[in-house]
Design a protein around this nucleic acid. Structure first.
Lengths: 161, 161
DNA sequence: GGCCAATAGTTTCAATTGAAACTATTTTTC
DNA sequence: GAAAAATAGTTTCAATTGAAACTATTGGCC
């Protein structure tokens, strides 16, 4: 019963041994993500003079006011340098107000100004409508399936660090 | 039967009106994609002194030799400037050879050198193994489902340009 | 054949980004 | 309670990137 030669496996998988970029999951995700991000960003960047990092900061602060910069970074998956720069620009454009924690003066306390809230109430529907248009090709069962598959992959990717 | 006031709809969807970053598909795709890309790139960038664009060029030329720069750009979803720079670096590192089409001297004809092929045969298994590790959380039915969902979304996203 | 538009690819220049070093404040340790 | 380590956030500097302008060659049109 020597194990020297093994039969080719019939795994049901077509590219076990060959790397085809257009079947390779990380590549496909990358192309899809970039395509989608580009479309959404086009919808607000020019019109509102708003970068993607700035938009993310606004989106998270609209829902969770009074976060610190580090907390914003955690919730947006941005690094703290990116948050720092986005916050600076948002303060300069008077869309964000910053105060400091009385008990820990290192920590900032970030809150949208009314101008910032106005941006949010204008841009959020654009983003949601785009998402809805995109998901229009899936029925609700398929959406649930996608949701769960992405969640499982995300958990897996994180656990592989 | 006035239509002035409509009942809240029970659509089965939780965030019809509210933007929650962590339920927002474009955002989730972006985080997942960046996490995955970072992992794979870490596996080869340092070890082989190879950037992501360079790796993409190698991957596509390994499978389709003698493409022009524009054809490489089409197959990798990179823009032509990125391809031009990656090609320059790959030629400098002697991983790629360039000749020119006899009938159209604008077009380059790109082909991996044996050193380039060696890089491919070392890196491709790393990439495929990562993909396999990631997909290990899905059974074959779920993989097929993911495959089809991503294809549908990609088609949709492209048609929305 | 000669001009004009199109295509292939490169270069330039400015904006974005990322890593590492930095300041300021707080917490821990001894 | 002083020194050392940790945390929050910023700045600096170099590398990456992207858009637009550029060169070179080819194809269409008259």
């Amino acid at each position: 019963m020597g194990a020297a030669i093994s039969k080719p496996k019939a795994t049901g998988r077509s590219n076990t041994d060959q790397l085809h970029l257009d079947q390779f999951l990380p590549y496909r995700l990358s192309v899809l993500t970039n395509t989608i991000s580009m479309h959404i960003a086009n919808a607000y960047e020019r019109q509102f003079d708003l970068s993607v990092p700035e938009w993310r900061v606004i989106a998270v602060l609209a829902r969770y006011p009074d976060l610190s910069a580090v907390e914003v970074a955690e919730r947006t998956a941005m690094d703290k340098v990116a948050v720092s720069r986005a916050v600076q620009r948002l303060i300069a454009s008077r869309r964000l107000k910053r105060s400091y924690d009385k008990n820990d003066r290192r920590r900032s306390v970030l809150r949208l100004s009314s101008a910032g809230e106005a941006v949010y109430t204008q841009v959020a529907p654009l983003a949601l409508r785009y998402e809805e248009d995109l998901l229009a090709v899936l029925n609700s069962e398929e959406r649930r399936a996608l949701d769960e598959l992405l969640a499982r992959l995300m958990e897996r990717a994180c656990s592989m660090s």
